[in-house]
Amino acid sequence: MNAMRIVGVLLLMLGLAGFLTGGFSFTRDTTQAKLGPLELTVKEKESVNIPEWLSLGAMVLGGAALVLGFRRK
């Protein structure tokens, strides 16, 4: 497989994953206070939404890269 086909497949997979999941979340530890040997930490859960237009655009670009990769052969 040439590089254009690999990029096309990766974009298609990432676009499909973003479209199906809608986003991802992660937990971040932050230190709120430090009093001598005591330390107060807070776990914050944050989420990132992936817009549908971005996922669809990645799938369209991936499909175009895949088609162009086959045409150059």
Score class of each variant (00 low, 15 high):
59 M>V: 05
70 F>A: 08
52 E>T: 04
57 G>V: 00
63 G>A: 14
46 E>N: 15
38 L>S: 08
22 G>Y: 01
41 T>S: 02
42 V>G: 04
34 K>P: 03
32 Q>S: 11
69 G>N: 07
48 V>C: 03
58 A>E: 06
69 G>L: 01
10 L>M: 02
52 E>W: 08
62 G>L: 02
45 K>P: 05
57 G>Q: 01
49 N>Q: 13
25 S>Y: 12
18 G>R: 03
30 T>R: 10
71 R>E: 09
2 N>G: 07
66 L>K: 07
27 T>R: 15
64 A>E: 10
26 F>C: 10
51 P>F: 12
6 I>W: 00
71 R>W: 12
31 T>V: 14
67 V>K: 09
65 A>P: 05
56 L>N: 00
11 L>R: 01
7 V>T: 04
57 G>W: 05
41 T>K: 07
11 L>I: 04
24 F>E: 13
63 G>K: 08
56 L>P: 02
70 F>L: 09
2 N>E: 02
62 G>D: 01
14 L>V: 02
30 T>G: 06
8 G>A: 01
22 G>V: 04
33 A>K: 14
65 A>W: 03
47 S>T: 09
7 V>K: 00
8 G>M: 06
51 P>I: 14
59 M>I: 09
51 P>T: 13
36 G>W: 00
45 K>R: 15
71 R>Y: 09
33 A>L: 15
53 W>K: 08
16 L>F: 12
2 N>Y: 00
69 G>K: 01
46 E>G: 15
16 L>Y: 11
15 G>V: 05
49 N>W: 04
35 L>Y: 03
18 G>P: 03
46 E>M: 15
57 G>C: 00
27 T>S: 15
40 L>G: 08
37 P>R: 10
18 G>S: 07
17 A>N: 04
38 L>A: 13
31 T>P: 06
27 T>Y: 13
61 L>G: 07
27 T>L: 11
45 K>E: 13
59 M>A: 12
46 E>A: 15
11 L>H: 04
39 E>S: 13
32 Q>Y: 11
65 A>V: 06
59 M>R: 09
24 F>S: 14
33 A>G: 13
49 N>A: 14
24 F>D: 14
48 V>Y: 13
23 G>P: 11
23 G>I: 05
2 N>Q: 03
36 G>V: 00
29 D>A: 03
19 F>K: 00
67 V>M: 11
26 F>D: 09
61 L>P: 00
13 M>K: 08
21 T>W: 13
36 G>H: 01
17 A>R: 04
10 L>V: 06
53 W>C: 04
60 V>C: 01
73 K>W: 09
49 N>C: 04
4 M>K: 07
15 G>M: 02
15 G>P: 11
37 P>T: 11
7 V>P: 03
32 Q>M: 15
